[in-house]
Simulated assay, not measured.
Amino acid sequence: MRRAVCPGSYDPATNGHLDIIERASKLFDEVVVTVMINNKKQGMFTVEERLEMLRETTAGLPGVRVDSWHGLLVDYCREHDIAAIAKGLRSVSDFDYELQMAQMNRELSGVETLLMSNNPTYGFVSSSLVKEVATYGGDVKNLVPHVVFERLMARVAENG
């Protein structure tokens, strides 16, 4: 079975993330969307909320499941018998960073990384930018899945 992981913080998941997940699901028998936990970062959404939103947005994709992990991604891959990491690239700066990570991950574990070019429609979209624009009242409806949009707007309203 060909298996890949799509790691990220997904705080929140965007349509760009979903595009990469969907495309990876066509290349692999199973894709594990993994929320990577970083205790040093305070997210807008809890890990459990992110997992729930991802499960809802990927429910219709065959072979896709959602999980979380705290630690090195290569350890997750080793523990779950996953041979590939699928990640999206928006820019040259993404490429520089992701190439170093891919080389490090291969050196540490032999896990290969598939770097997928983004859909140009989402080339400017990042979770951080979506949160910032939403916080200032900007319209991000077309940048995130519907369930994420609803929860994002509710969270922005809570935080007033």
Rank of each mutant, 00 (worst) to 15 (best):
K26Y: 14
L27W: 14
F28M: 13
E30P: 14
V31P: 04
V31D: 02
V33E: 10
V33Q: 08
V33D: 08
T34G: 03
V35F: 00
M36F: 14
I37Y: 10
N38I: 07
N39R: 15
N39I: 15
K40I: 02
G43V: 08
G43E: 06
M44L: 15
F45Q: 01
V47Q: 01
E49D: 15
E49C: 14
M53G: 05
L54C: 00
L54E: 00
D67P: 12
S68L: 09
L72G: 11
L72Y: 09
L73A: 04
V74G: 10
H80D: 00
D81Q: 13
A86I: 08
A86V: 14
G88P: 14
R90D: 14
E98M: 07
L99V: 13
Q100P: 08
Q100G: 09
M101Q: 15
A102K: 02
A102T: 07
A102S: 10
M104R: 03
T113A: 02
T113N: 02
M116Y: 05
N118M: 07
N119G: 01
T121D: 13
Y122V: 01
G123A: 09
S126K: 07
S128P: 15
V130M: 00
K131M: 00
E132G: 10
V133H: 04
T135Y: 13
T135I: 09
Y136S: 14
G138K: 03
G138M: 03
D139M: 01
K141A: 12
K141N: 12
K141I: 10
K141V: 11
N142W: 03
V144I: 05
V148P: 03
F149K: 02
L152T: 12
A154R: 13
V156Q: 12
V156Y: 15
E158R: 09
